[in-house]
């Protein structure tokens, strides 16, 4: 005899509860951000002005205190300052050719942490997030579902996702649904 098809009951707040078991998804504190472009000849001068060495290798990040530079491309970085210290005044004094745009309010940061963090992000991100391919400190512009993000591994089981402000609800919802699946598997 055919089995009746049942439906799985999901309590209204199950997403939020499930997320607590293996992964935590929370908004990052506000921070300052600069979209930076600089040719190789300018990297030293710009690094000095920022007080953090701009990494020159793919997927590398570098930090000094609360300030971090994330490699996005051969002449492109996303620079974050999590202490709220302005970066543009110092950069404005650099004679070496470069472009720096304050995008602090364009992005939203989301912190995904816990032992299920990589699995949750991999629900929407096609990159290999194993520790050998995406080591602690690695960063990359990539995709999360249908939006572009910058992903940064700040600890073995902790990631920071930077997405555009208008995509933040989408990113948060996608991660929460993924967290439900990861914690129930």
């Amino acid at each position: 005899m055919a089995e009746p098809i049942g439906t799985l009951r999901r309590p209204a707040l199950s997403d939020k509860r499930a997320a607590r078991d293996t992964v935590s998804i929370k908004a990052a504190d506000p921070c300052l951000r600069v979209a930076l472009r600089a040719p190789r000849e300018s990297v030293a001068a710009v690094s000095t002005a920022l007080g953090v060495a701009l990494p020159s290798r793919p997927k590398m990040s570098g930090s000094d205190g609360a300030r971090s530079a994330l490699w996005l491309g051969p002449d492109e970085w996303l620079v974050l300052d999590q202490a709220g210290n302005e970066m543009l005044p110092a950069l404005a004094k650099v004679d070496a050719f470069h472009s720096a745009v304050d995008v602090s309010h364009r992005n939203v940061g989301i912190i995904v942490s816990g032992r299920g963090a990589a699995d949750v992000i991999n629900a929407g991100c096609p990159q290999d997030l194993s520790l050998t391919a995406f080591h602690v400190g690695a960063c990359s512009r990539t995709l999360l579902g249908k939006i572009e993000i910058v992903l940064w591994r700040i600890a073995e089981d902790e990631f920071r996702i930077e997405c555009w402000r208008s995509f933040a609800d989408y990113a948060d919802s996608l991660l929460r649904v993924a967290a439900r699946d990861v914690s129930s598997s």
Binding site: P58, L72, G73, P74, E76, S140, R141, T142, L143, E148
Partner: peptide
Amino acid sequence: RHVHGCAR
């Protein structure tokens, strides 16, 4: 183009 990566 590595549009959603290094953008090059």
